[in-house]
Each structure stands twice: as structure tokens, then as C-alpha cells.
Amino acid sequence: MYQIKAKIIANRRITSRYYNLVIDAPQIAKFAKPGQFVNVCVSKGNEPFLRKPFSIYRIGPQNVRKKSKIELLYKVVGKGTDILTGNKTGDYINIIGPLGNGFVLPPKTNQKQQSEIILIGGGIGVVPLLFLAECLKNNRSLGVSVLVGIKSKEESFLIRDFNKLDCRVKVATEDGSNGFKGLVTKLLKEELGFGRSSSVCMSYTCGPSLMLEKVSKIAEKNKVPCQVCLEEYMACGIGACLGCAVKVKNGHFPGFKYVRVCKEGPVFDSRQVIWGE
């Protein structure tokens, strides 16, 4: 965990609402794992007051062993992200990271055994999954399928980098303007139906909480382990403020306890999470 004043390499506008931020942060890039995040001080004043957490999209540069840059992909949703768009190449930004526990990679299987991994992302929730997909593709001989749910074809750039990784990608759009018309959870049901789930050894998901809940239920029903990457309001990001609590099973209170999304998470085994409370 480092707090650094990092130089901005690029802050590119992708569409009117999505930006790609590349930061020179060798310490963070060296230790970052997929699913981890950085807590960014977006404002120099008091508005917005708190740092803003962002999942790491990937580390770079590609094809170089010593990674020194981290890349974020963010959607402009409020004051904080709006201010962030104003940052220019060469500006400095104060970030803390890498934070939280990342995804647990599946155990290494022997080459002959066919095993599949499914990633399910909703909108901007694809961010940590791209970093994950890169790691899965680089290090292992696994089949990686990516199911992405987006609003419409305007957000299709969110799947571009998965295509480049040679993953099997399927898209669901709410308006049917690209791929399947409907929700990504429907795609997942199809994907795991007809006994096909037996070859899937792990699923990973990130997106809106209702989607995560549905994905968890489908995965559990089909006996596929599922790791969910959660989001919650957060202040410190380092486990001190206890603001980002999520209810999980097997506590002493009784039957539940609150754990910190920033510290024990943001990635949890889906079976641990008590949804909607």
C-alpha cells in the first residue's frame, strides 16, 4: 500500500461519459492484482470531500515485464469524476493503492483437462474483469468467456479490449442495438444451461448489485463457484473508517457480521454475501 503523487500519462475521452486515465505509478503497478483498486484524491478543495475508489483496468505497458503504469477506466457520474476529466497529461494526482483483496485465480489444472472460466460484467463493472482476463490469458491455458451487459451499442468499446485478448465474448444490450437483447444474466443462464456448467471451474463478476445478486444465484444453482467484486460508499479505503460495510454470513451476531469492502473485499465468495441488507 502506497500513497503517491503520481504523474498522469494520459486522460483520454472515449465517449462523452467514459474516460481512460493512465498514471505513472511503478510501486502500485508492481504489486497490483486484478480486483484491487486505488483511492484517488480528485479534488484540491473540499468538493467532493472524499477520495474516490477506482478499480484497476490494467497495468502496463504491455509486452514489458516491469510494469510501471496503471490504467483506469471511469464513467463520469458525479462531481468527483467530472473534476477528474479536467486532468491533463503531466498533471499530478494523489493516489493510494493497491487496495483490497483481488480475485483469487483458479487453481492450475493439467493441460489435458478442459476448463472454462466465465466473467460476467455489467457496464463499467467490466473494469476489474479486463485486468483479470489479461492475467488468466497470460498465465494459463484456460478458456475464458466474457459476458458483458451494456445499455446500448454506444458502450460497445467496453468489450473491445476483451476481443483483443482472444476471449470468447458475448454482449447483451438493453435495447438490442448490439448482440443479445436483454439482460446479461439471461446470457449466463443460457451459457450454463443444458449441463454445460460442468466444464466451468470458476466465474467472476462485477457490476450493479442487483445484477451481482442474480449472477450469484444462477452460478450457485449450477454449482459453479462465483467471486463477486462489490462496491460500497467508502471514505478511507484502508480499513479504518468502517464506512463500506457489507453483511456476510457466519458471524457472531449471530449468523452474520459486517466486513469491510475495502479490506476483506472488494472480492467475495458469492456464497458469503447476504444480499440486499
Binding site: 467532493p48 460508499y233 457489507v246 453483511k247 441488507e277
Partner: peptide
């Protein structure tokens, strides 16, 4: 156990 979330909000 503490209170249920959301526990914090920016003002």
C-alpha cells in the same frame, strides 16, 4: 456488529 449500510455519505 455496527449499523447496516449505507453508513456514510458525503456532504
Amino acid at each position: 456488529a455496527g449499523n447496516p449500510p449505507p453508513r456514510i455519505v458525503e456532504t
